[in-house]
Simulated scan of single mutants.
Amino acid sequence: MSKWNEQAERLRGTLVDFLWDQWIALGVAGRGTKMPPVPFVVDAEALLLATMRFGGREARLVGEVLDWLARNGGLISLQRLKNLQTSSRVGTREGLEELGRFMEAAGHRNWKLLAAWAESVSSPGGQAWVPEGLELRKMSQAPDGSRPEVFLLRLRSLFGVSARPEVIAWLLTHSSGYAAEIARDTGWFSKSVQAILNDLELSGLLESEPVGKRKVYSVNPRNKTFHQQFGGGSRWFSQAPFYLGVRHALEILERLAVTPDASESARSISIRKNLPAMTAAFRLAGMGDDFKGASSLAGADLVASFEGGVERLTKKIARRAFE
């Protein structure tokens, strides 16, 4: 096995453990890993797409996730799932088609349109995701709203499955922000986010300050509706671009693995095919330091920089050391 195969397997294995721990935090039946706890609010839609992309080989993980979805699928935003898939392509067409049919059979009739949507917007690609002959164990639990990781799903239980919970969760985990910034991080359309911000400002829950031609929004510290304990300990992490960055890193490693005898120049060219998109995605996730400066390198220097960046990324996932 080449060092590129070994590096890809380490990254993928660490990522699968990371996916397991997040699902267990949401109520999936399992023991979890011995790694540190998940340090941020779990993004269920980004997690679902990432599990489809990176966890497809793990039949037990997939089975338990489907078990959880059969019970708690009403907490998933199908529109946001589509939005994130459109922007990141982390999920797969086959996986989304199978998921839509599975959820419809499990009694979530509104999921039946997911399969048709995936077929209309995606080209074929990806492996089968729903295991053949799957029998649900029915051991998943409803999310425990007292856990910081579940804060977003708690808000959905309060306000319904829409853009509003994401906007509120973002505001409660940041000091302030612009509408465009909130829209980008939450995966919702800018007009929808702006309308929600306008409503919240009229209610007195938010305050705004003009900065140039834009407004910066923050939770009104004088309003007691969002008291100090509500969302206490919750942290935001932009998970969709993070998984997109990981996808690009794995694609590079897989290409390098099939050409183990290539020259350093050829490897550098192969890395550059995904490098701009990968580094942009990690910057959006607040993790740009791992591959900082790589775009200015070439040849053996770029290969060494990429290899070191993947090692740092793998260690960060293992330690849960996210910004």
Rank of each mutant, 00 (worst) to 15 (best):
G107F: 11
F242W: 05
G95N: 05
I271C: 09
S176L: 10
G100E: 04
T33Y: 02
R80N: 00
K292G: 08
R57S: 12
S175I: 14
E209A: 06
L172C: 10
A280R: 11
W68F: 04
S238N: 15
G232I: 12
E307N: 13
F242R: 00
G288K: 00
W117C: 05
S2I: 02
W111Q: 07
L15Y: 06
A285H: 03
S192H: 12
G145V: 11
N83T: 11
E119T: 03
V310L: 03
S146A: 07
P210A: 06
F282P: 02
N274Q: 15
R312I: 08
V211S: 15
I271M: 14
L256I: 03
Q7K: 13
E311A: 09
S176K: 14
E6I: 11
Y243V: 00
S87I: 11
A169Q: 01
K224Q: 09
G212R: 04
M52V: 07
N83K: 06
T33N: 04
Q194M: 13
Q7A: 04
R320W: 07
G74L: 08
N5E: 08
I24A: 12
G100N: 04
F159W: 14
E207T: 07
S305K: 11
S157E: 15
E251F: 02
Q194R: 11
E94I: 06
A318K: 13
E323M: 10
N223K: 09
A163T: 08
F242H: 04
A298V: 12
E58L: 05
L136N: 00
L244I: 02
K112Q: 13
F306N: 03
R184S: 12
I317S: 03
R57D: 11
E132Y: 10
F230E: 02
F322D: 06
S265G: 13
S77E: 03
E311V: 11
L75T: 01
H248W: 02
D289K: 15
L15D: 02
S234M: 10
R80D: 00
R147Y: 10
L69G: 04
P131V: 01
Q85A: 04
S190W: 11
S268F: 04
K138A: 13
L197K: 03
F159N: 09
D21T: 03
W20N: 09
S208Y: 00
S296D: 01
